[in-house]
Design a protein around this nucleic acid. Structure first.
Lengths: 123, 123
DNA sequence: CGGTTCGTCTGCCCTCGGCAGAACGCCTCC
DNA sequence: GGAGGCGTTCTGCCGAGGGCAGACGAACCG
């Protein structure tokens, strides 16, 4: 549990709760976000999931943070390691994108303004 | 319309109607398939859509055939050229994956056996 | 037949995927 | 306090492959 507490102390909600500020986030961002969510939900470390997927933990970290563009085989490998598949993943990515598009209206919602203020403080 | 007639005379249904024989197809295959469907539905050539997306027609062809792994920015650019977005695309990819998973039960369906016979003849 | 259009093949430059080692932050223990 | 362990991110770098231009093949038309 201490690991989870540590995770929540990471730099900011941006890594976990906010995607990029573009009109629409990029595929790798949403995907990565979803993969991290799944991994944390299973209570696994980068090391464990990466090992199960046959990749390095460093690389999995970058995938989750949308820093690298995983190949389709990599996506499949990580999905397998998380006991899910491409169908589930794309479904969840779709759901997340839908949530995002609803959460980004022309007028800022209170939680959105709060998040931006938090980001300004962090910067 | 002659262009469409020509398209249907391409090497086989595999390019358009059958994805890979793996338990689950790869992301780039389903995505590419979907992108080609969209483009053809709009009656556009590779040249037109590629130009609108700011990429080469050769490259778009490869993306559509699942030969190359497009970056997230490329996916967004092609989506934009096809007047769609990532949300729509992932939604359709999900739908297609669902269809695929239903179309691949343990016992072969008649259409599946027919397709395999066709592929054997083509090989 | 030659010309045109469309899609695919091929070779290649250069960007970035994927890794290993280093660094960082946090926690526990002595 | 320091040492050690753990989890994650940073950094540098080799080689895989993204993306392109030119060539090629198939189909169609006059």
């Amino acid at each position: 549990m201490s690991e989870n507490a540590r995770i929540y102390q990471l730099p900011g909600p941006r890594g976990l709760d906010r995607l990029d500020h573009r009109p629409e986030p990029l595929w790798r961002e949403v995907l990565g976000h979803r993969l991290r969510r799944l991994r944390l939900h299973r209570g696994e470390t980068l090391l464990e999931t990466a090992a199960a997927a046959g990749i390095s933990p460093q690389y999995l970290s970058e995938i989750e943070r949308g820093r690298k563009e995983p190949s389709s085989e990599m996506i499949a490998a990580v999905a397998g390691a998380l006991d899910t598949d491409l169908l589930d993943l794309t479904e969840q990515v779709t759901a997340e994108l839908r949530r995002e598009s609803r959460a980004a209206p022309l007028e800022p919602t209170p939680s959105r303004a709060t998040t931006q203020a938090m980001l300004a403080l962090a910067a």
